[in-house]
Amino acid sequence: MIGAGKIKQYSNILEKPLSKGKQEVSLSAFAFLFSELVQYNQTQVDNISELERRLEDAGYAVGARVLELLCHRDKGNRRETRLLGILSFVHSTVWKVLFGKVADSLEKGTEHEDEYMISEKDLLVNKFISVPKDMGTFNCGAFVAGIVRGVLDGAGFPAVVTAHFVPMEGLQRPRTTILIKFAEEVLQREARLG
């Protein structure tokens, strides 16, 4: 057998290093699965905000798991405790693992102190999706908003996260902005920590 004996045998499974696993899945497979997820949830609801909520809930479960996995894999079982730390963790580490790239931008809201925005020109989940006109401002990015909420909530930063289409000048397609509004207690704690 070619290659036999090359794989190191570990007597104790706990000594085996945690492999990074295969990093990528087929985009088509994901697109079809996600499409089915949206279609299924559409049959279960009778208005658009309900559909948005269901997609967000589906994402929340992903987010909670991703946080746990990445803290273990990349951070040696530590997690971010500061606001900017966790935001850049979401913007770079989480985004890279889920979408293969860092998010296009991370900005602080201009009007409110407690709002932050992660923007993406061409969000992966929206790559093949055209929302019909009669669905108004519905954005399938609600799923990603749910992921972000799951990560933040798990790390102790409860927040309200929503996804919006924002038209861009000079671009044919609007970009998707994930708006994060942190709970009051988070900002109070941040202020206390200095």
Binding site: F34, S35, F128, I129, P132, C140
Partner: peptide, 15 residues
């Protein structure tokens, strides 16, 4: 791959 498209129906997809 668009969840809002119904099979065999007229195509109305912006993208």
């Amino acid at each position: 791959k668009n969840p809002f498209y119904e099979m065999e129906m007229p195509i109305r997809c912006e993208l």
